[in-house]
């Protein structure tokens, strides 16, 4: 923990120093050259190339490019740094042309999804640990099937051994779809337990019609329902931790392509205008 704090202080200091240096240098550029926007543009483009390269660095681990952890931290803080660069580049003014509006919009989406990614990748693992029932994402279907088989076996057992179809009917009517696949995705993301509580209430109501033996089976079903709900919680959060990259990475490539086109247009059409 102390190491993490130390690294955070180090990176924050570097970010602060880089920001102060940039603002100072930009002020000098503004006075010395009429192409300050070009300079900030190239700097922004260069940092964006490095940020985009983070995805590729991970794919070539055999090259001595440093630890991925360091690159990730560089990615986070350099991403924040591009915010300042962007503001200086556009001089705090939202563009008015369609091409540049879309370019700025793409940057805003990448920046926004990146911030969302920081928030959830830093915060949600704590939620997952606190909730318990942790399981690798790829194993979730297997565990879910095992729970489903156990629940189904309990329902069948109640028919065969206890000579009562009450639990089996309840299972078929209420629990079969629950165990069949992931449920209540959005409720888990926003920490709402309403669906689980409704199901548990229904099970609780069912107990009035059960004898002692059936209640033992029902208690086992309650336990399985809780486990399945925990598994769905894991699935919802872990899937989201992967899905945000479906926005961040593709739009990053889109942004880079748009930026290259922007460079061509600026040099081809501006020809000296500022």
């Amino acid at each position: 923990m102390r190491g993490f704090l130390r690294r955070r202080i180090l990176w924050t200091s570097l970010l602060g120093a880089a920001s102060v240096t940039l603002v100072s240098v930009f002020t000098l550029w503004e006075g010395a050259t009429t192409r300050a926007a070009y300079l900030t543009g190239w700097l922004l483009f260069g940092v964006m190339v490095l940020l985009t390269g983070y995805n590729w660095f991970k794919k070539i681990p055999y090259l001595p490019l440093g630890r991925s952890e360091v690159w990730l931290e560089f990615h986070l803080y350099a991403g924040v740094f591009t915010g300042l660069l962007f503001l200086l580049h556009v001089r705090g003014r939202w563009p008015t042309g369609w091409f540049e509006i879309l370019l700025a919009g793409l940057y805003a989406v990448v920046m926004g999804s990146g911030i969302l990614g920081i928030i959830i990748s830093r915060g949600w693992p704590k939620r997952l640990t606190a909730r318990g029932g942790e399981v690798p994402f790829e194993r979730i279907p297997l565990v879910r099937r095992a729970l489903c088989e156990q629940a189904e076996a309990l329902a069948l057992k109640s028919v065969a051994e206890l000579k009562s179809a009450t639990i089996a009917e309840f299972y078929a009517r209420r629990l079969q779809s629950f165990f069949a696949g992931p449920q209540n995705f959005l409720s888990h993301l926003v920490e709402v337990r309403l669906p689980l509580n409704e199901l548990l209430n229904d099970l609780n109501d069912l107990n009035r019609f059960l004898n002692e033996s059936e209640r033992k089976v029902s208690a086992q079903l309650v336990e399985l329902v809780r486990k399945k709900d925990g598994l769905d919680y894991q699935h919802a959060l872990q899937l989201t931790l992967r899905l945000w990259l479906f926005i961040h990475i593709p739009i990053t490539y889109s942004l880079m392509l748009w930026s290259i086109a922007h460079v061509v247009l600026v040099y081809g059409f501006s020809a000296g205008a500022r």
């Binding site: 704590k126 939620r127 909730r131 318990g132 942790e134 565990v143 729970l147 486990k227 925990g230």
Partner: peptide
């Protein structure tokens, strides 16, 4: 909070 739930012994065991 998630940590508070842990204190409430709501934490599930790993399957």
């Amino acid at each position: 909070s998630p940590l508070a739930r842990a204190e409430l012994k709501d934490q599930l065991p790993s399957p």
